[in-house]
Amino acid sequence: MPPVQPTVTRRPLHRRALDVQVFAREDGLFDVEASLIDTKSHDVPLAGETRRAGTPIHEMHLHLTVDATLTITAAASDTRWMPYVGACGEHGDAYARMIGLNLMKGFRQAVQERLGGTRGCTHLTELCQVLPTAVIQAMAGSVIDTREGDADGNPPFQLDRCHALRRDGETVAKFYPRWHQAPETATNVS
């Protein structure tokens, strides 16, 4: 399918850039550095001042350390640009509340419970939502076995998590035959 082509002239208004980088440490742990940066293409009034075009409205960073099971062992945040200086970055060590959470087991819901609403920063909490898949992608095939499943006999974690990797589909039949399941037989009811 071709990309949607605009039929009218347009001008950029806003850009949000998300970046997640994962690093292997020599002690066997992994560092995760994530950032969210919002910029405008035009000057905007903001908290009694003018924020110039291209200058960040938000620049926020999360720093995590995780172990090989994807459990968070350290967490911190850093807000460098914000709309309300002296207020936005004053959530203390709120993001340290992620310590002990596992990126593969209920992470997104637990982050909402611990940091949603006024318990944290909207933008940093939203940034947390992309962390599980980004970190899993970094570790897939090296730290996480994506071929044979786990020691308990469960299939690889990625199966049945998207339409391409549904266990009754052609992709799984071809690349993961051990885990393929026959499609359910549809019955017509008159």
Rank of each mutant, 00 (worst) to 15 (best):
L29W: 05
E59D: 06
T133E: 14
I136R: 02
T125P: 11
G86W: 00
T50I: 15
R108I: 03
L36M: 04
R11D: 08
Q158R: 08
G86H: 09
R114M: 06
S142K: 10
R52P: 13
D152S: 06
V4E: 14
A34S: 03
A173W: 00
D145G: 01
L13I: 14
D78Y: 11
P3C: 06
T171D: 10
L103T: 15
M60V: 15
Q137P: 12
P6W: 02
N188C: 13
T73F: 01
E59F: 00
Q112E: 11
P183G: 07
D19P: 01
T125Y: 04
A140D: 04
S35R: 14
L115E: 05
R167Y: 03
G117E: 14
S41N: 13
Q181S: 12
Q129V: 06
L159F: 03
D19Q: 09
D43F: 14
R114V: 02
G169W: 10
L159N: 01
P45R: 00
R161M: 04
Q21F: 04
E126L: 05
R97A: 12
V189H: 00
A96P: 03
G92W: 02
G48Y: 09
P3M: 02
T7Y: 07
Y95C: 04
A110Q: 10
Q181G: 05
V143L: 09
G48T: 11
C162F: 03
F23Q: 07
L127T: 15
G86C: 03
V189R: 01
D150Q: 02
S77I: 14
